[in-house]
Simulated assay, not measured.
Amino acid sequence: MTTFLHDGDLPADALASASAVAIDSETMGLRLGRDPLCVVQLSDGQGDAHVVQLRRPDYDCPNLKRLLTDPAVTKIFHFGRFDIAMFFLHLGVVTAPVYCTKIASKLARTYTDRHGLKDVTKELIGVDLSKAQQSSDWGAAKLSDDQVAYAASDVLHLHALRARLDDMLAREGRDALAKACFEFLPHRALLDVAGWEDTDIFAHS
């Protein structure tokens, strides 16, 4: 396994032949509109990871933006709702098509309420992820080796999780429902950005 650290943008030839790319991001916090996007990490599921430390505030990353909007590449997230909203706010793109392992887990693993990446990864593929660097300074001028390793670990297993969850969704007859949720997810993220972050517009009240 190799982790590549890139300054500002993904190289043009990186992940060029991938039909599905796992993606996650690191930010200075979890508030849309307040906390900046700092890092985007990606993997094609073959064991390597690309960690892009973005240049703020211009976010000049045409290769990354091209990948996020490529209709031929499925972007795999865990809780993609937040990442997609951050990409729209800071990169100006709507990410699609997408797959979210957290949504898939909630639809398939109805026997539990533990749908965090660490829990799902441990149960389904036997990998125990470390979350030690989750709350660290991602806006630092230089990322530590531990930060880079942590960022990579969050995307290296998403392809395997997707495969396991797809089997469970098909077994339970919920694969079509999951597909519809994934198609709506970018729109849900845009609702968050537009101010409906804490409102269920489908609710009666």
Rank of each mutant, 00 (worst) to 15 (best):
L190V: 10
A160K: 13
G116K: 11
D154E: 14
H187A: 11
K142E: 09
D175L: 14
K131M: 11
V148M: 09
L158S: 00
D146E: 15
Y150E: 09
L165H: 07
Q147I: 06
D166V: 12
D166A: 15
G173W: 03
S135W: 09
A178V: 01
L165N: 07
L169D: 09
A180V: 09
D166F: 01
D175H: 10
L124C: 02
A132L: 02
V148F: 06
K142H: 12
D128G: 01
S144P: 12
R174V: 08
G173D: 03
R109F: 02
S144D: 12
D146L: 08
D146Y: 02
A140Q: 13
A170Q: 11
V120I: 13
W138I: 06
L185K: 02
H187G: 06
D119P: 00
G139Y: 10
D175W: 00
Q134S: 07
T121M: 00
A149M: 10
D175I: 12
D119M: 04
I125V: 15
L124A: 02
R164N: 11
V127N: 02
Y150F: 12
A189D: 02
A140D: 11
K142C: 07
Y111W: 09
A108S: 15
D154K: 01
D146H: 10
K142R: 13
V155F: 05
R164K: 13
T112V: 05
L177F: 03
A180D: 11
A152F: 04
R171N: 09
W138E: 02
Y150P: 09
A149L: 14
L165C: 10
D154S: 06
P186C: 07
R162P: 01
A141W: 03
A132Q: 13
K179A: 12
H159S: 04
V120D: 00
V120P: 00
I125A: 05
A178I: 01
A176C: 02
A141Q: 12
D154C: 06
E123K: 08
S153N: 10
L117Q: 12
Q134C: 03
F182E: 06
A176V: 14
L117H: 04
K118W: 00
L158R: 06
G126M: 02
D137C: 08
L169C: 08
E172D: 14
A178T: 01
K179Q: 11
R164I: 01
V148Y: 04
L190R: 13
S130L: 03
T121S: 13
A189C: 09
A176E: 13
F184Y: 14
K122I: 00
Y150S: 10
L185M: 11
